[in-house]
Design a binder for these strands. Structure first.
Lengths: 251, 251
DNA sequence: TCACATTTGTCCGTATGTATC
DNA sequence: AGATACATACGGACAAATGTG
């Protein structure tokens, strides 16, 4: 009898560019290649893998789209290894939204569910350094608002810092991707309505970021007091506000 | 002040293959091209877009990876429009989890958190058809067990059916991804220690699948009664058992 | 500021394997 | 079984962009 490996071996051999991209991906996942590292140039990579440049480029496209690398032209350019796949996941969520596979409500609901669970861990596990990071985020956000800039990035980052404070490495991935998706959805919807309705949206946007920062401050205070009930309640309310804002923009 | 659209307009002109893939994607999103439709062949597409084969192929790679199309070789083959975008998101999550150094414990904890939240929606939203699907799953699992086969696949599927019953399309993606990541990590760990362990695992495995099916039956009964408290409690206990079993396997 | 080297982006032509009719 | 249609893969070439000296 043949061994099971031979019995269940893939029906069709993988294409060359798939094997190449899988190989590079494995090197990254195993830590042999680290974020920030430059890969050799296309020509050099093609030579080392003994494939044509066309094949290698198709492999690079896969790695680029999945977020493992970016590519820069010109001298000292080339493929550059990245450290996060958040943007790629977020982009796919946007596609899914456009294909009407998911709705704003669904995204909001699951985000609320997950972040509430996360917050419980945060209150159990967070230490002084986490408070400091959150505090720094709020200060930066306030500064931007005083400069009359919407602190969109900082407001997303607040949730990412929270995820890290849960001391569970899965939470930053899940929360980060969904948060990024809502952010991208938000900016896109604002961009679309901006051209139609004029600049009035801008002010509303400023008001909303201000409201978000206030909510964040209240949540941090509750976390500091290790007050689960209040913290969860504030978070829930905050995320519902964000969801409603999205819904209003989408209409 | 300029509006934000001009401020954040793309730094560099998009590459040709990006424009091509975006164009095709747009046709799919707008419903002009529907799942099941055949795209023209590479050569024909290249001719119509007036780009080279290589450029067009890179565009196809993007569409393929994002789940918009598959590609078939041979006569009357060619690019075929698909609808597997949600699968692509799951695959990306799997990559993202692997990039973080994640442990079985972390995965177990977050799985328990998320499935508990999910179960609440299931109890609110599930209909008779969902019960039927779950019931069918349990019957199939029981049948396999009577044949002395471990119903591993069926037991995993039970949770996927639950995720669908939540009526939130994001849940199947997240829950499925975490389950897939757990399996992936586990097989990795087991492969490493395979030489030490013998086939004695098999009997234990059978016992565990039996226990799991019993738990699943109890959970379904609670869902049918719309008894949130009991259902969540049973699920939590069940996932803790699974977690402990995985921990033992991984050691 | 300007030329140069490096690297990606793009195109063309060709050959081969494979699935379908 | 043979012809056809298609993706896959290779090699060579030039253009465009970008950092460096």
């Amino acid at each position: 009898m043949q061994n099971s490996k031979a019995l269940f071996s893939p029906i069709r051999e993988k294409r060359t560019f798939e094997r190449v991209s899988a190989k590079i991906k494995r090197l990254i996942l195993d830590g042999v290649l680290k974020p920030g590292d430059h890969l050799p140039s296309e020509i050099e990579l093609a030579r080392q893998f003994d494939v044509s440049r066309q094949t290698l480029r198709e492999a690079l496209r896969i790695l680029e789209l999945t977020g493992f690398i970016t590519v820069q032209k010109g001298g000292s350019g080339g493929p550059l290894i990245q450290d996060t796949l958040m943007n790629s996941i977020s982009n796919l969520y946007l596609d899914a939204f456009q294909m009407e596979k998911i709705t704003i409500e669904e995204l909001t609901v699951i985000r609320c569910d997950i972040e509430k669970s996360m917050l419980n861990h945060v209150i159990d596990k967070s230490v002084e350094a986490d408070f400091a990071a959150l505090e720094a985020n709020l200060i930066e956000a306030s500064r931007k608002i005083e400069d009359n800039q919407p602190a969109i990035h900082e407001n997303i980052e607040f949730h990412n810092i929270l995820a890290k404070a849960s001391k569970n490495n899965v939470y930053p991935v899940v929360v980060g991707s969904i948060a990024a998706a809502t952010r991208d959805l938000l900016t896109r919807l604002i961009d679309e309505t901006l051209s139609e309705k004029g600049l009035s949206e801008y002010d509303e946007n400023m008001v909303n970021t201000k409201v978000a920062v206030v909510s964040h401050k209240a949540i941090l205070a509750a976390i500091r007091k290790r007050d689960k009930k209040t913290a969860v309640q504030l978070l829930e309310q905050h995320l519902h506000e964000v969801g409603n804002r999205l819904k209003k923009l989408a209409k």
